[in-house]
Design a protein around this nucleic acid. Structure first.
Lengths: 177, 177
DNA sequence: CCGGGTAGTGATTGGCCACTAACTTACTCA
DNA sequence: TGAGTAAGTTAGTGGCCAATCACTACCCGG
């Protein structure tokens, strides 16, 4: 048995949760499956986090931050057209390398919608803040132009949806990019 | 007690299911809640449909078809720039009038992803076909230009995501449109 | 008025799942 | 070295939920 500090365990839980939630969604993922992936007993998750929702929240935040970081790193030292291109390429590399990041994003969007529909505003507030950080990172890289930013993210979102829907790379729907 | 033909009941089940699934997602929606909304007992749903998944599938298809129909109607007799503008306006009107259509779309995307991750390819196949019908409807209206179509849908997808995330209409994130 | 088909219900069940409580194992430092 | 503390487990509980079964209410033609 490998013992870790609580902080290290929390970290591995977040990583495992991202994978599981990305594939199964919030309701469709059992804490059991997360625990299995971490290699720890299921009840122990509730020592590390107050509840399932907190685990999801942490995973979703991590997912946003990761994307933000990719944008920041790719656009570092560049601006305008060059930054745009670099961020696009980097994002494609990210989702080719780890599609779960993309799926987790989608799961986050619908989870916020469901929370909001259920009367919980705080959950969405946190994730909107996270998302805006990503937005602003892209915006600054693009010379603070909001139209360019919107355009860039719009194409990104379409990519997310098409990948989620399982359209294979050779499908004609990709011809318009 | 109001008695209906099975066909009529199925129709009302689909309408109710669209609302419930839109807000709760596939796993997060109980057949009980759908039955309540229809005004019928929960077991009766299983006379009308083989299972929960079939109800979701029918609702998702309906959701796609509705969007397709909005595009078709809006672009009727128009082409190029005029068709683009008409479809954009019509879509905004649709989601202002009935946001559940938009949320159901998002739920559909993640549901396909989860099904695909779980090894079920048929589910996604059906909905991809539905989605492509919407795609082609927009494409034909835009003079069969795939780049224009992709551009149009990309902005639509970003709108979907921002609405799902609960960004209010006066939020600065909308400034780039 | 009756018999068969169709619309619909009530009761139930087996399985899953988030979360709790009580207990055990290992590290650490005085 | 042993006592305190932090990491981790086993066993359970109450609640929910999809699906099934056996039953009832209603309608319509002969």
């Amino acid at each position: 048995m490998v013992r870790m500090s609580a902080e290290e365990r929390r970290e591995s839980v977040i990583r495992a949760a991202m994978i599981e939630f990305a594939r199964g969604g919030y309701k469709g993922t059992s804490t059991e499956s997360i625990a299995k992936r971490v290699g720890v007993s299921q009840p122990y998750l509730f020592r590390l986090f107050p509840g399932k929702e907190a685990i999801f929240l942490a995973a979703a935040q991590r997912c946003c931050e990761r994307t933000t970081e990719v944008f920041r790193a790719a656009s570092d030292g560049l601006e305008g057209e060059a930054a745009l291109h670099a961020m696009g390429t980097a994002y494609q590399a990210l989702i080719a390398d780890d599609p779960d990041v993309l799926l987790m994003q989608m799961q986050m969007y619908v989870a916020v919608a469901s929370a909001e529909a259920g009367g919980d505003r705080e959950f969405g507030e946190t994730l909107r803040a996270c998302w805006m950080e990503m937005y602003d990172t892209a915006r600054l890289a693009l010379g603070a132009d909001v139209s360019d930013t919107t355009h860039f993210l719009a194409y990104g979102m379409l990519i997310n949806v098409l990948v989620s829907m399982g359209f294979q790379p050779d499908h004609r729907v990709w011809a318009g990019f």
